[in-house]
Amino acid sequence: MTTLLPTILFLLLLNNLVLLGMSRLRGLIRLTAFQGILLTALLLCLDHALLAGAVLLIKGLLLPGLLMRTRKGLHAATSLKPRLHRGLGILAGMAGLVFSLWLEARLLILPDLFPPLLLPTALTTLFCGLILVVGRTTALSQVIGYLVAENGIFLLGVPLMTAGAVWFELALLLDVFVAVFVMGIAIHHIGETFESIDVGRFRSLRD
């Protein structure tokens, strides 16, 4: 199984870059779902079958389904208005990748703790999530950004998991699920009230 690991990590990286280059909300959500499935495969490779099932359920099916539902209910424009030019976003993602590789060489970690490429992939996923949050203007894509960032953190945690920590991770997953659930409802209401989920317009809420 471990021969598949580099391929999965590579696909995760590719997925991140495509996320940054995606121009439509629907594609963005699908890619998030694909990321969840990739995480599942990764966990299976590392023999965490129980967690893999949970991740598949939550990150692969529930969250994307929820986002999809919210998107359909919004009647918002399907294309994302990038605040940051998409090309620049991809460049920033690349820079994030190089930076994480540089960081990996600098960090002092136990030598066998992380499989090769896992740490940079995790950090890059985190960075890409944050770039999504910063670079896009719709609230829904910001939620997706947070989700991707959380995936990165989750990846960082994977090698650190011992048997007990699995429950901790599961609890965390549940938290994220609830958070996204709440945000989904909130965005739905925002969309109904403002007829837009462009966060740029929220500025009018300040006093």
């Binding site: 990286l13 590719l14 280059g21 991809i90 690349m94 190089v98 590789l101 490429l117 940079p120």
Partner: peptide
């Protein structure tokens, strides 16, 4: 640009 991004991703990963 997309092709360039893919190529540089591959380049970075081969460097590592």
């Amino acid at each position: 640009g997309g092709a360039a991004a893919l190529a540089s991703l591959a380049l970075i990963l081969t460097q590592v």
